[in-house]
């Protein structure tokens, strides 16, 4: 037999699949969890669902940052720009008579539009300097927004158009839209990374020059990720606004959001779709437990982040994955030979 015939015969025996059996089981479990979460407003008191809104926002923000930094290699410290623009879009649209819940996706769209010219500027900076450059851009957006009197200037503004809705219904609607946002960001990342874009993104992240010489349009791939991430953060900003019913420029454009996103992703595991999910749960639990300790809680958070960056580069999910081989969102492939499990990523 010639070499090619050998290879073809050999390839016929090999089965390639994305999902291991464990992934299918865990996929079903996750679908069940999503259904239970969706039914929660009928089952528990509104204090529980109100708290969970914060968790969903954190999951969405962290997923977007993970997409940007973990898959696109774009380490931004300025995503609060889009949280702020999304929040203010919802405020402004509601003032124009748009139903606030409908304004959330429109706010996301606005953010994507703002992200186009912003990316022209920001992409001129490389690596670490990109991080601080995006931060300056977020500051510029904040300083511009506080100069607009129509949205309350420096003191912020309340959300209009919500007074007609019954309070219980409002709480439930806000909860559902926050849940939808979290599911959409995770699902969106998964679908994006499974496809051609995902492959080219990971190639760009790992070796930009090689990816570019293999025919990948590096800037286009990065810009796509940047726009999606901006839209996701914008929607999160919108959800924050309809949950708190008002907006304050210093709080919504605060670099603290970036701190949260980064620590959730680093602790959970950067570059895994599961990472932000796990990280957000850990972060949220820490937040609930340590809420009474004031700033010490942030000191601890910073120290944990530093420790994770130094000694646990794969985060908690990296640890889980190494021990169990579990993958909730398989974006790679498994190769099986006959019945044996010769697995590769």
């Amino acid at each position: 037999m010639t070499l090619s015939q050998t290879l073809i015969a050999r390839a016929a025996q090999v089965r390639v699949s994305r999902a291991a059996r464990s992934s299918k089981v865990s996929g079903a479990a996750m679908a069940l969890i999503a259904v239970v979460l969706a039914a929660l407003p009928f089952l528990v008191f509104s204090t529980v669902t109100d708290t969970l809104v914060n968790l969903f926002v954190l999951i969405a923000l962290a997923s977007m940052w993970n997409l940007l930094a973990g898959f696109g290699g774009l380490v931004s410290v300025g995503q609060q720009a889009y949280i702020g623009i999304g929040a203010y879009s919802v405020i402004a649209l509601a003032d124009q008579g748009v139903q606030p819940y409908l304004a959330v996706p429109l706010g996301a769209l606005t953010c994507a539009l703002f992200a186009v010219p912003t990316s022209w500027l920001a992409f001129r900076l490389r690596g670490d300097y990109f991080a601080v450059g995006t931060w300056v851009i977020a500051e510029v957006y904040r300083l511009l927004v506080v100069r607009i009197d129509g949205v309350g200037g420096g003191s912020g503004k309340g959300l209009s158009g919500m007074s007609g809705i019954d309070q219980t219904l409002r709480g439930a609607l806000t909860y559902w839209i926050a849940l939808a946002l979290a599911l959409a960001t995770i699902g969106g990342c998964y679908l994006l990374l499974r496809g051609r874009v995902g492959l080219s993104l990971m190639a760009v992240r790992d070796e930009e020059t090689a990816a570019s010489s293999a025919g990948i349009d590096v800037t286009r791939a990065k810009r796509l990720v940047y726009l999606i991430s901006a839209a996701g953060c914008g929607a999160a900003g919108g959800v924050i606004t309809i949950s708190s019913l008002s907006v304050n420029p210093d709080a919504i454009f605060s670099v603290q959001w970036s701190a949260y996103m980064i620590f959730i992703v680093v602790i959970g595991g950067i570059g895994y779709i599961e990472g932000p999910l796990l990280g957000a749960l850990v972060f949220f639990a820490l937040q609930q437990v340590l809420a009474d300790y004031g700033s010490w809680y942030l000191v601890l958070l910073g120290a944990v982040g530093v420790a994770a960056a130094l000694w646990l580069p794969g985060g908690l999910w990296g640890l889980v994955r190494d021990r169990t081989g579990l993958s909730l969102f398989p974006v790679g492939y498994h190769v099986r030979e006959g019945g044996g499990d010769a697995a590769s990523r």
Binding site: A69, V75, V77, G127, D128, A131, A259, I262, F263, V266, I270, G294, S295, W296, L298, V299, L301, G302, A303, G305, V306, A308, A309, L310, P313
Partner: peptide, 24 residues
């Protein structure tokens, strides 16, 4: 030695720690 992201994260973490210790 821990990758390109690590230095950024470490200094960022340090910044959060210093700020909040000063605050306390």
């Amino acid at each position: 030695g821990a990758g390109p992201l690590a230095t950024l994260l470490v200094t960022f973490g340090l910044s959060i720690v210093l700020q909040n210790i000063l605050l306390e």
